[in-house]
Design a protein around this nucleic acid. Structure first.
Lengths: 226, 226, 226, 226
DNA sequence: CATGAATGAGCCTTCATTCAT
DNA sequence: AATGAATGAAGGCTCATTCAT
């Protein structure tokens, strides 16, 4: 029965069946507004303009809606990040392109942004697998940029790449998170350049820093759990 | 009846009644492990070693447990940040103290860390008010540090303070988040110094940066929605 | 619309339309395997190789499939019992022929056997009417045999015919039921002769019985509710 | 959670909690009247005079109600059969006691009788295990009686014990089944003696049988699938 | 203060049936 | 005649909350 049900579910999707996408969009909207557990199938159905039962023609169950979303929609977006990075040559431009595109995509799909934020900061995740994949994709891109930058001499060599990844992702995430909680009233993409500048130059006044060696620790051995 | 109930509920708390704290700790543990909506009152009661009904002598309802947690327990922790900051003089040391203490406290109370991460990255928050307060407290500290640093000449003046706040909080949050999802196997506090170094100096190679003016934008007018 | 639908539904049956029978066979198979209420129209449709909706061109609803089955298929089988009985002269041979044929038919159509067993031992029957008819048909045959046997002097006269009917049907049914639950691994028909022997001679040792009169009650007045 | 729930569920039962039995009786009544799958939890709850949810304090799920019934109530009854059999000495009396008690118990608890009939004649059983156990218990008693009878010389030796078991159980079951479908208007127990007489002496007229050897087959090799 | 049995609203999910194509 | 996507009523089950003890 499940096999049967899923055969045509896939067919529908392949055919570009709009009902599948209507339900997915509706669900994501409702989830973003109310949270996954406070959302009901009935609300999603109403939002999508279909009957409750119809949802189960396209999705195995409520959880599956979220999983499908992260498997298809979000993955798509993350794949675009790589394209954008590949357009640039030097590491600074790559980083700037990545972050610009990141902010742009999340600004364009606010619901996705909300779900992504919520799901990546949850302990018991419904979409563990998908998050891990996307996370790895993103981290790999950043690693690549940093390593290239080190070769180019544009990025310090006395830093932990795995910490840098968090440093960057964290900054971007927090900028998005703040934007989301502000109601998305301002332009998110305009934060990209100033943010990249902070990533590259830090907040310190260069002259002072260069004459202040107290922080110039050598690399320590840290288990960075990555 | 309700009035009566709440009179002594408050008394209990004032008296430092240990049942109140046992329930709170139990709840936080269960919430951290399973998520708020997947946790049941029965599970919390069992974990705390009390009857289900007893919980309602100390808490108005399930939501209230979370609210109380953020109102008392977490606020307590955030208040300590200020103390720690006040111990230092220059802005770099203040920032380092703040972040060290932050990581330390979150490492010491992993459950709190989990709940904090989850709740701050949710759209529909049960503890909106509390999160906002804590957030403001933290942001104010960072603002203060940054402004002091600018006066001291240790921090660049051509940056948006409100963006810097997110830049710093995001990095710290992400380091904590990664630590949480790694299972908390390594020492979180040891990440403080390298992280502060990144905040201050950035990832860029100073020599290159100083000869590269393309990023040296003047302050733009950005609505930072904070 | 309904009238139209049913006109050709009847035509279909008259025409010996094979889709009607394919669905019927498929349904009986599925019902036998999973039970009526655990079976779904989708399962039947898949088994029959037709669309769900097609079933409703030939059957009024799910219940009707079962009713049709008992009305046509099973009745057909029971009609053969009479033929078989008529082939024999004396009551013993008639009884033996009846039971042999009964076991034979049920062995040849295991699914029918399963449904028959289940449906005849249910309180709230979907096919009350049909079961009653078939039951009457069978009981009448047995009655006839017994009465003929009594006239022939081959069957005791101090017995309740209506009790004898249950005695015989019960034995046959139980033999079938055991066979079904064993997985139908052995030859059911081979049980006919030994069973008939038990019906006729009982389990008692004749010599002992004949010298033991305690059981030789005269016919009592019993409301046998048949 | 389940462990917890079942801890006190068992306590309740041990304490002779009447709510457990009220629900069980109500369920059995509803099941008997409408069939298991047509019965709803709400109907059972209404019949028992409790809330729907209360049922789940005592039973794991709907199926479990039936399982519990067969595990406790019916098993109890079947255990009494043995007691009754042990009261008699010779095999005929044992058989008569068994059957009398069987009819008596089933007459006294009509709902049990209905459920037992339905469940034992179903292919996909919810209580497979329990039915098997009870069936074995009953079959063992009958085997014992027959074997003892053969030693006593009261029961023929040229019969298959395993066939005899079905022969007897079948007769009893069918008598009960007929009684049930008649609406239980007459006295079931009064059928015991005539039925036992049929089991022992068969329906054949002794004088004829003894002069008719055509049926006196020797034991054949039959796979009786027992 | 504490208990935990009882409640019942609410939600997910199934599936017989319909109907536009 | 045939299809199968869509429907929505119905039911099993959970769990926050209450209240008699």
């Amino acid at each position: 029965m499940i096999i049967y049900k899923w055969r045509f579910a896939i067919n529908n999707k392949a055919k570009g069946n709009d009902k599948y996408h209507r339900i997915l969009e509706a669900a994501v909207k409702v989830f973003a507004e109310q949270g996954f557990y406070q959302s009901t199938i009935s609300q999603i159905a109403r939002e999508a303009g279909v009957a409750d039962g119809t949802i189960y023609l396209y999705f195995k169950n409520k959880d599956d809606i979220l999983v499908q979303f992260f498997t298809y929609k979000t993955k798509l977006v993350f794949d675009r990040f790589r394209e954008e990075v590949d357009k640039a040559d030097n590491c600074y431009d790559k980083l700037r392109n990545l972050i610009r595109r990141h902010l742009e995509e999340f600004q364009n799909d606010r619901n996705m942004a909300v779900l992504y934020q919520a799901e990546t900061h949850q302990n018991s995740r419904l979409v563990e697998e998908q998050i891990k994949e996307m996370s790895k994709l993103y981290l790999d891109i950043v690693s690549e940029i940093v390593e290239q930058g080190q070769e180019e001499g544009r990025i310090r060599k006395d830093i932990y790449v795995s910490l840098v990844k968090r440093f960057i992702i964290g900054g971007v995430d927090e900028v998005i998170n703040t934007w989301l909680h502000s109601g998305g009233k301002y332009d998110l993409v305009s934060m990209a350049d100033p943010l990249v500048d902070l990533f590259i130059r830090g907040i310190g006044n260069t002259e002072i820093i260069n004459s202040n060696n107290s922080q110039k620790d050598d690399k320590q051995t840290i288990n960075q759990g990555d």
